[in-house]
């Protein structure tokens, strides 16, 4: 008897998540953001191909972008680290804002809360939607970056020149790109978890966007104050330079590992706050 009741009161999670993912990916604003993100590597690649690199090979190149000239496979990594500064967090924050606060603003969250779906499953479902946005966004930048780097920038016959002056073969170079992409997704999930937590407390999606982008800017300011150096290990953004480490040879994993650990702490705390709040929310 109980099994029949359970079958009626709980929907399979896969179906819920698939419905949410379809719903998220059909939103025009999500698609526009994806397109914008895909434009980032194209813009860098075309710019470098036309001008021959910043400063015409002089030493004043702004970091990674200078390393892309004549070295196409660096382009996806450079584009990811540029986009991680603001564009990618903006994308996941938009998705997280729509997930809970947006639903509340349209009064559709009440329907979801009343539906025969557990609150935890509801949060997990919304989380899957945001996760999908983060993964697709990062993949868009990485794949378009690889293709653009290959076709527009070109390079020394399918190899990547590291910052250490060594040359990596195609397989290892793509492995490094995949490593940076995976690491970027984890960092974005940390942002997304915090954004979902904010989203669970408000019914104005703009509050979520303002909180996340404002928070990123505040973190940047805090990191720039020398007397607050002790705060650095706590700030999510202070590890975001570690993506560059993938371009060093031999690969140093310290920075990538510590920033991933930091992101996981943010992720767990954000998810816990979100679930805690959604258990109590009533509309």
């Amino acid at each position: 008897m109980t099994t029949v009741e359970q079958a009626r009161t709980t929907a399979p999670f896969g179906r819920l998540a698939a419905a949410e993912v379809r719903w998220v990916l059909r939103r025009p604003r999500t698609l526009v953001l994806f397109a914008l993100l895909a434009l980032v590597p194209v813009a860098i690649g075309v710019g470098i191909a036309l001008t021959g690199g910043p400063g015409g090979g002089d030493r004043d190149g702004p970091g990674l972008v200078a390393a892309v000239a004549g070295n196409g496979l660096v382009l996806p990594i450079a584009a990811l680290s540029l986009a991680l500064a603001l564009l990618l967090p903006l994308t996941v924050a938009t998705a997280a804002a729509d997930a809970l606060a947006g639903e509340a603003a349209h009064s559709t969250l009440r329907g979801l809360l009343l539906a025969p779906v557990g609150r935890t499953r509801l949060v997990a479902m919304k989380g899957v939607g945001v996760l999908t946005v983060a993964v697709v966004a990062v993949l868009a930048v990485a794949v378009v970056g690889v293709v653009t780097g290959w076709i527009v920038v070109g390079g020394p016959s399918g190899t990547m020149i590291t910052l250490s002056g060594t040359t990596l073969g195609l397989g290892e170079a793509l492995g490094r790109v995949a490593l940076v992409a995976g690491w970027t997704i984890v960092q974005l999930l940390a942002v997304a978890a915090v954004a979902l937590a904010v989203s669970a407390f408000t019914e104005h999606p703009l509050v979520v966007l303002a909180a996340v982008l404002g928070g990123l800017i505040v973190f940047g300011v805090l990191a720039a104050i020398p007397s607050l150096e002790w705060l650095q290990p706590l700030l999510l953004t202070s590890g975001w330079g570690a993506g560059t480490d993938a371009l060093r040879d031999p690969l140093p994993l310290d920075g990538l590992a510590s920033s991933t650990l930091r992101a996981l702490v943010y992720l767990v705390l954000g998810a816990a706050v979100t679930v805690w709040r959604m258990r109590r929310r009533d509309g």
């Binding site: 290990p233 650990l261 930091r262 996981l264 702490v265 767990v268 705390l269 998810a271 816990a272 258990r279």
Partner: peptide, 20 residues
Amino acid sequence: WVGAGLGAALVGAVGVGLLV
């Protein structure tokens, strides 16, 4: 739920401790 909340707080504290 109280247990889960405490667990999350513990994870956070341990993580921060590891980082700092």
